[in-house]
Design a protein around this nucleic acid. Structure first.
Lengths: 278, 278
DNA sequence: CCTTGACCTTCAAGTTGCTTGAAACTTTAG
DNA sequence: CTAAAGTTTCAAGCAACTTGAAGGTCAAGG
């Protein structure tokens, strides 16, 4: 029989931890003196403590460990717990690896420039329903005209509450200023079903925008002329981190352009991407 | 300018988190209404928020992030922080990998038997000074005799406070009952310098026991005859986990044998091991 | 026998990065 | 004008302990 201090040295576990385990009923001393409150432990208890520490070391919570060591638990249940835990660790392992990549990428960025620039960030975007029309435009002005029209007509048909940001999905593979395949959309906060006819006869309908697991996003403050640095940043990121673009780019108008105040607009550019696995 | 709710949707960050960041002074709204307390944010703030989230995502603490975004920090310092963080992640990655191995090893154990047996555990042992004599014994009894002698003589020369457990370091490569190269030692809690002469003329001196980074330990309750299951467990573990023994085995007598009560003794067997890197 | 110092006790609070909830106020939509 | 939605502050809770304060206990030395 040892007092807590010596036992803690034998077991290589801080005394405070033993007290805590006592408190939560995970590991109780064989004897607690009623008078003095002193805890007494025996070497016979070491295997149990070791089992507890081993299970904790696997990353299980003390609650789980408690169940495993005190209740009679079926082998099936143990297997289940461990399998779950295994999946979690694999998950952690993967995300830590990504994190490492991110840090390394930052360090590399640092080598060249003297600034920590991070106007691009990764997001994961959920699926979302939207009201859209897809159109092949012969120039940017045409697209603007349609957008303008939408801005006037759509709010008449849909409650402001339901209406989200205005956005564009750019389907053109390459950028050719006189042939832009673009989908002009209003994101919807609620699921509704409707169609809207614009003044030029274009039809808008409700569809589901697919989710993007990994999206590389950048903010653009101002009109398209400010887009160069954005695309630069995005391109650099994709190149240094060995990713590729795997779908159409989206532009969400956080602050939509107002006539005469175009420079105040704010657009989030979203590129679905994936790591190159080669 | 947005109120917290809308801004939280734009930025994909829960409002509670924005309030918290406000509270700790990490990210402040551009305006806080004195009357109502309402917080107002601007899209202009998104880049800063994004920078914050990106740095947080690297696994830095909010304190560190705060320093990085608000103070003027030199590139050198940023580099230092990131390099440190990189090392940490690599560390995590490694230990998570080991954890995964451990879980898998448990699952495998489970396949065969219907019991969760874990009387072996990994420890890391610090260096320690000790008072020892090394001797080649022609049988176990001889070793016992020396040990007995030590048990009588050493306490006369060293204060009980300084004296730690009795232990043995087994240097023999193979186990041959009639030629055991063993070091009989008293662990010391404090560093002292002395020599002790035993009754058979053997000299004990103070030396430093090297640390063991990874030790596989097992508890033996009872005399050497109980050692079989221990060595079994150790062997099994080493085999299934692809490790190898890289140094002499130590036996620490947690509860030393008393004449007539040998079955009550408790010994911790410690094997220095390392992963096979092939 | 007493003192000294090491050791032990309980209890409270702090750690990190938030989340949840309560009670009360403001704004907005209908 | 009212109800619903959104906001505020404040407090507590999570996990697994650690740290510290105030005070009680124990063994050895004088």
């Amino acid at each position: 029989m040892f007092r807590i201090g010596e036992f803690s040295k034998i077991a290589q576990v801080p005394a405070s931890q033993l007290r805590y385990y006592n408190e939560i009923g995970l590991f109780t001393p064989i004897r607690s003196d009623r008078e003095t409150g002193y805890r007494y432990y025996s070497v016979q208890q070491l295997p149990k403590l070791n089992r507890i520490l081993a299970l904790k070391d696997l990353g299980l919570s003390l609650e789980q460990v408690k169940r495993l060591v005190e209740d009679e638990v079926s082998v099936e249940e143990i297997r289940g717990m461990l399998t779950l835990r295994k999946a979690q660790i694999e998950q952690t392992l993967q995300s830590e690896a990504m994190r490492l990549q991110a840090v390394e990428s930052r360090l590399q960025q640092l080598e060249g420039k003297d600034q920590l620039q991070d106007d691009v960030i990764l997001k994961s975007l959920p699926a979302q329903s939207f009201l859209a029309t897809r159109h092949r435009c012969y120039n940017l002005s045409e697209a603007f005209a349609i957008a303008n029209d939408m801005g006037k007509i759509v709010p008449k048909h849909v409650r402001a509450k339901t209406l989200g940001h205005f956005a564009a999905v750019i389907h053109s593979e390459q950028f050719e200023p006189d042939d832009i395949d673009v989908e002009l959309v209003f994101l919807l906060k609620q699921n509704i079903d409707m169609t809207v006819t614009l003044s030029m006869g274009l039809e808008m309908s409700v569809r589901e925008l697919p989710p993007i697991q990994t999206a590389l996003t950048a903010m653009r403050f101002g009109g398209p002329e400010r887009g160069i640095s954005c695309h630069n940043a995005i391109g650099t990121w994709i190149e240094t981190n060995q990713y590729q673009i795997i779908g159409p780019c989206r532009e969400v108008f956080i602050v939509p352009p107002k006539l005469g105040h175009e420079s105040e607009m704010v657009v989030e550019i979203q590129h679905p991407i994936a790591a190159i696995t080669a």
